[in-house]
Amino acid sequence: MAEGLNYTFLFDTFFIALSGVPIALFVTIVSMLIALPLGFLLALTRINQVPVLNRFSQVYVSFVRGTPIIIQIFIVYASIPLILSSLFEKYNMNINVYDVNPIWYAFIVFSFSTTAILIEVFRSALNTVNKGQLEAAQSIGLSNFQAYRRIVIPQALVVALPNICTATVNLIKATSLGYAMSLPEITLKAKVAANVGYNYVEAYIDIFLVYIILCSVVEYGFKLYEKRLRKYKYIAA
């Protein structure tokens, strides 16, 4: 480190890292859009003890919680092409699986792992809503679906939101592992730039800054939303 930091590189690479933000956000949003409804439905199967699905969700959650995401990525990234290519061969389809955009693998891995986290988030949040709320809704003639949509979910969401925020921020950070499957997101882009002149320290600082800015903005957004949702809770009489 005799020469100190290369400030020009630090400055330029910041924008290279920044250019990976859209991909990181895109993966985050798509994974969330898949994981939110799926996690919610599976949480309902846990709460209502739906015979087979309940057990399935339980195993699924412990499976995901018990394995590092990087390993999940390796497994998906290595095994799915194998399965696909044997399928393609069998049906004589002329598609090269190695041309598939890695973003598809990212969608699979990240929605798979986030769903498991959200099952637990929703399960605990739904349990905080008193059963009487559902009963009261039924007694005034609301269907189960209406009762959930209008009474139970709005209350559960307020409780779940801080944890959903944590899950989202964790997901954004986890997309950095996308570099392992050559997903051109923040980390990969900065690292590639650093490869040329071995300016890794500068690249890491840039990556660090981009993530912390990105995550802070997302966190702030969640805080605003939460404030709006929980307005019924803490108004002075």
Partner: peptide, 16 residues
């Protein structure tokens, strides 16, 4: 349920 209404011991008003 359309013909009946229920008043609960612990009110069960919709908190939201």
């Amino acid at each position: 349920r359309q013909k009946t209404a229920f008043v609960f011991q612990n009110y069960n008003l919709f908190n939201n």
